[in-house]
Amino acid sequence: MPIPDFQSLMLPVLNFARDHQQLTLREVREFLAHKFSLTNEEIEEVLPSGRQRRFDNRVAWAKVYLERAGLLFSPKRGCFCITQEGLDFLSRNPQSISISVLHQFEKFRAFRETPKESPKTVKSEKSLAAVPVSSLQDEVETPEESLEQAFQSIQGELASSLLEQVKSCSPHFFEVLVVDLLLKMGYGRSRSEAGRAIGRSGDEGIDGVISEDRLGLESIYIQAKRWAGTVGRPEIQKFVGALHGQRARKGVFITTGTFSADEKNYVLSIDPKIVLIDGVQLVDYMIEHDLGVVLKAVYEVKKIDLEYFNEE
């Protein structure tokens, strides 16, 4: 089954805490994974950043929200337990716990009101009652998930716009762009060395050559195609023939277009070694290595340094 959202985890977490004096997040995760019959693949699924497992993140935020409502508390580092308020709440046999349900608790309302809001925008208890329940329940993603989803959307739009910009460049500029990118990725000894071309009009499928490392121990031959659609097998074979003509062992074929699965399988079965980079991968590399893009804003996400507060 899909990983439950963090609101769906809150009631099971609170019920589990009722039956234990103290709990750790690890114990709760194991209980919830079994309760919801999660597979290993689902448990190991990570957020887009790759820095945290999605399931762990949702369990942690379910616990945080219950603590902010006063239903759980942490008596010491790494452990938590249920409060009397939490026991009283469970005695009413709630069918579920959501953000809208937690808004009945004053501590939770104070937690949700950001200190940076002006007096005119801070929600009072009366104004919260007017907030539609559906709008409070729509938050199925944790704050990290929402932040990373927004980041992925911005990156996707940037990549799409960047690819269109690259496609509008002249063929010559595109070849320069490819060399610039490879330099930023650590290939080549210098800009002048990296830019040396092979033959130009009579290149027979080779646009340039670049050293694989700073010492120039081996060369990588480049084909750069500003292409609108799928690059055909004949173009790949022409590049292979050109590499054989240079007695080259390695080549990179970069295009603004795409490669079919057949072409990708073809280059895996031949010698020399050829790497295919399509338009999507190209702009991903450009963004990663800050080519053709500038920094617009930086947002820092911080957490408490628990080691600093360790008095032992």
Rank of each mutant, 00 (worst) to 15 (best):
S219I: 07
E193S: 11
G257F: 02
V252P: 00
K167I: 11
K296S: 15
E41H: 10
F16A: 11
R214H: 07
E193V: 03
L38K: 01
R214S: 12
G257S: 08
P234K: 00
C81V: 05
L215Q: 11
A197L: 13
D5R: 02
D207H: 02
A110W: 05
S260Q: 04
E148L: 05
N93C: 11
S118F: 07
L182T: 05
F259L: 03
I3P: 06
D19S: 15
P48K: 08
S146M: 06
S190L: 06
E300S: 06
E164M: 02
I270K: 02
W61M: 11
L66D: 11
S91T: 11
Q7V: 06
A69K: 01
R109F: 01
L72E: 09
K303Q: 12
F111V: 08
K76E: 13
M1A: 05
K264C: 14
D5M: 01
S153P: 00
R214V: 12
S91Q: 10
Q137L: 14
I210S: 01
S219L: 09
Q149R: 13
G241M: 05
K167T: 06
R247S: 14
P4N: 02
A69F: 01
G241A: 07
T255S: 08
L177G: 04
P234Y: 00
K126I: 15
V140P: 10
R26E: 15
A17H: 10
E41W: 05
E85F: 08
M1K: 08
T24R: 07
Q22I: 13
G186V: 01
S124K: 09
D88E: 14
